[in-house]
Amino acid sequence: MTTDQVIFIILSVFTLGTALLVVTLRNLFHAALALMATFLGVAGLYVMLDAGFLAAAQLLVYIGAISILLIFAIMMTRRLMNTTESAFNSQGGASLVTAVIGFLVIAWAVSQFSRVLPQVVQKQVDMKPMSPDVIPYIQSSVAAMGQAFVDPNGFVLPFEIASVLLLAGLIGAIIVAWPKAEDEES
């Protein structure tokens, strides 16, 4: 086994184990902590895939923002200490169907990928004696990603749509939080 494989197995066990804890722990706060650990494990997998930017974004967005929001929600809505919810509910059938469908979709996607994969590997083998114009491209994957975001042939449309969506959310939040006119008079 190579070092990469050992690290991959450790990360996968960590990610899956903490994910299992999320759904089995009875204390909601601890479940939220386990969810953070899961996100951390996923970030580790991204690092293994040489996707450092994605890993940092995962840390910033999922642990730094979404998990904090989750914990705030738990603290605001439940009694503070000793929240012990039952880990199970009566929606086993529906979730089974969803899980099976989700698994099938992912399995199909992965099988498609494995058809593409040999070509990608072959391409990398072909590139082995790296030509000077390929090296900077590979070294600055962040710059390549940034250019792809604003490239008309790349992802400029989804990128712009996402920013419009975020802006709408921002304005919506401000309007919701705006003091109402009749409130001020009362």
């Binding site: 450092g52 930017f53 840390l59 910033l60 642990i63 730094g64 923002a65 070294q139 600055s140």
Partner: peptide, 14 residues
């Protein structure tokens, strides 16, 4: 890291 500054921000936000 080629994402050095972003890394700092990610760690400190986490």
């Amino acid at each position: 890291l080629d994402i050095g500054v972003f890394y700092v921000l990610a760690i400190s936000s986490a």
